[in-house]
Nucleic acid binder design. Sequence first.
DNA 1: CCGCATCCATTAAGATACTG
DNA 2: CAGTATCTTAATGGATGCGG
Lengths: 129, 129
Amino acid sequence: MPVSNEMADKYVAGAAMCPYRLVLEHVTSRWGVLVLIELLDRPYRFSELRRAIGRVSEKMLTQTLQTLERDGLVHRDAKPVIPPRVDYSLTDLGREAAEQVRALALWTESRMGEVERAREAYDEAKGRG
Amino acid sequence: MPVSNEMADKYVAGAAMCPYRLVLEHVTSRWGVLVLIELLDRPYRFSELRRAIGRVSEKMLTQTLQTLERDGLVHRDAKPVIPPRVDYSLTDLGREAAEQVRALALWTESRMGEVERAREAYDEAKGRG
DNA sequence: CCGCATCCATTAAGATACTG
DNA sequence: CAGTATCTTAATGGATGCGG
């Protein structure tokens, strides 16, 4: 069984009945989020993308890209040359998703201060029981 | 060790250096997304939320809620009565996040048709090799 | 260089029984 | 009711070898 189906198939168990939840999970998945945001800037080659994201395994990146490609969010352009060269870019659909994901990421970044204050308050309250 | 720290601590391994990625992962996590969207409508009690989301384990819901509470996105109001009653609601910060997450969810729902066509095309192309 | 496939260790998720 | 503790199962990520 190809690795490509792992994510797509297994998530069916959790998100089951409701097909859109599946796509939402692909888009909001740990590496899906980061891939979409990177590709919003420009097309990337595989290992370029891997370096840009950092700390993602080859396996997970492959899997993420395949899932997003299958959902029609990412376009894969494999050039038949040696050594191989494969460029990944966003489709129009993918760009729409990526823009929303990026908005969320930017929001998160901008609110980090508040989040950290909330955490300190929470941890202190817990610490005292 | 309380269950509450599993998600928050472990994700450090993957998202490490970059603290905002951690919050982004909490917000976009499988159950985080759904919790935020539900709470956008109104406050929910624990098991009410569990039923509303469906197919979420007690453990994961607890964990998700604790993480979101610690990040200052969700407010937990435990009433000292018997039987216990705990209401969860969004903070102002959480509402901002939830609105963006909901926008993404609505987008996903609205684009399901396109996603499904893309999948069919992808699967057919693969099928033929 | 861009993968696919497999084995293996680690981590997260889920089911269940139990407590205040 | 709202969790916690414990155990089992699934997902993830690393390493490695292989092929186009």
